[in-house]
C-alpha cells in the first residue's frame, strides 16, 4: 500500500487494502465512504473490536457529541481496541470528534473519560467567535514540514466544531488553525493521524490527506 502518493489510486484487492471505518453512529459516514470510493480505496464499516484491532488501516469518523461517541465506542470494547492498535503503531485516522475522544476528557461531556491516547482536555471555543465554527479555515504547519514528511500540506480545510484542543500534547507533531486563538487542526505521531477538520469534505486537498493515510504501510513503518 505504499505506492499511492497522489489524490487517486487504483482499486485495492483483499482485506489488507481495505480501510475499516468504525461505525460509531450514523453522522456523515456516507460522505466518508463516498470519499474513499472516489479515491479508489476499498472501505467498509465495522463494529467488531477484533477487526478494529487487527485491520491494516482503521478510520474513526467524527460523529455527534464527545459523550455519545465514547458511549458508542465503549459498548463493544471498541475504545480498548483503538487504544491497543494505536499503542502498536497501526495506521489509524481519527476525524473531528474522533480526534477529541483520543484526549482525556472534554468540556462538552463532563465526567466522561476519553480514550486517553494523549493528555489534555478538549475545550469550547471562546465566546468572542461564532460557535460552532463552520467553514474553511487556513491550516499551517508550525514545524514547516511538507508531504511526504507530513500527512498534509498547508491549505484550507473544512471544519464543523464547537470544541477543540488548544495545544498539541508533547511528542506529537501538529498543524494549526485560528478561531478566536490558535487550535489544533491536526496531530500525528507514527502512523496515527487525527484531524479536527473533515478531510472527506475538504475537496481535493482533503482527499490528498486521505490518500496519504491509505498509502501508509500496514506494519506501522511510516515516513511521517
Amino acid at each position: 500500500m505504499s505506492s499511492v502518493t497522489g489524490t487517486s489510486g487504483g482499486p485495492r484487492e483483499g482485506p489488507a487494502g481495505t480501510v475499516m471505518v468504525v461505525a460509531t453512529g450514523v453522522a456523515n459516514v456516507a460522505s466518508v465512504l463516498a470519499a474513499w470510493r472516489r479515491l479508489g480505496v476499498s472501505a467498509r464499516l465495522t463494529r467488531d473490536p477484533a477487526e478494529v484491532l487487527e485491520a491494516s488501516h482503521v478510520q474513526l469518523p467524527g460523529v455527534g457529541s464527545f459523550g455519545a461517541a465514547m458511549e458508542s465506542l465503549r459498548q463493544d470494547g471498541l475504545d480498548e481496541a483503538l487504544r491497543r492498535r494505536m499503542a502498536l503503531g497501526r495506521p489509524t485516522l481519527a476525524i473531528c470528534v474522533g480526534l477529541q475522544v483520543l484526549a482525556e476528557a472534554s468540556e462538552e461531556s463532563p465526567g466522561v473519560p476519553g480514550i486517553g491516547v494523549f493528555p489534555g482536555v478538549v475545550r469550547r471555543f471562546p465566546g468572542t467567535v461564532r460557535v460552532p465554527q463552520f467553514g474553511w479555515n487556513a491550516v499551517s504547519l508550525p514545524g514547516g514540514q511538507r508531504p511526504p514528511e507530513a500527512p498534509l500540506a498547508p491549505g484550507h480545510a473544512y471544519f464543523a466544531n464547537s470544541y477543540r484542543l488548544a495545544e498539541a500534547p508533547g511528542g506529537w507533531q501538529w498543524a494549526v488553525a485560528d478561531h478566536g486563538g490558535p487550535f489544533v487542526a491536526a496531530l500525528w505521531r507514527g502512523a496515527v493521524l487525527a484531524t479536527q477538520f473533515h478531510p472527506e469534505l475538504s475537496g481535493p486537498w482533503g482527499l490528498g490527506v486521505m490518500a496519504r493515510f491509505a498509502a501508509l504501510p500496514a506494519d506501522g513503518r511510516t515516513s511521517w
Binding site: V26, N28, S31
Partner: peptide, 23 residues
C-alpha cells in the same frame, strides 16, 4: 467532496437520519 446541506419536508429525526445516511 465539500459539505452538503439538505432541507425541505424534514418532519422528524428519522427524516433527518435518512438524509444523512444518503449523504
Amino acid at each position: 467532496s465539500i459539505p452538503l446541506t439538505v432541507g425541505g419536508g424534514v418532519r422528524s429525526l428519522a427524516d433527518a437520519r435518512a438524509l444523512l445516511e444518503a449523504g
